[in-house]
Amino acid sequence: MICTPLEERLRQIVATVFDTPADQVTPQTSRESLEPWDSLGHLVLVLELEQEFGVQLPPEHVQQLNSVAEIAQILETEYGVRA
């Protein structure tokens, strides 16, 4: 598994928020593949991302954050976050 530094950090965040072992989270991990990542879980994850990266994510972006790779992409292109 080759991860960018940002994806690596996001894997840790996703693993912690959903209390899942980090080695089971990959850039491809998504709302479909991870059971605790339901709609309430998604809200908690978004709030954690906002705190962690000091951003506020509007609904347009919130609905695109469907996998670790997508979160990395939005954070990078829309907010200039690198790691």
Binding site: F53, G54, V55, Q56, P58, Y79, G80, V81, R82
Partner: peptide, 20 residues
Amino acid sequence: MISSPERADAAASAGSERRA
């Protein structure tokens, strides 16, 4: 709301110390 890249950068770099 912080949405401009510069501010996000500033927040992220301040955050990286906190994160350590």
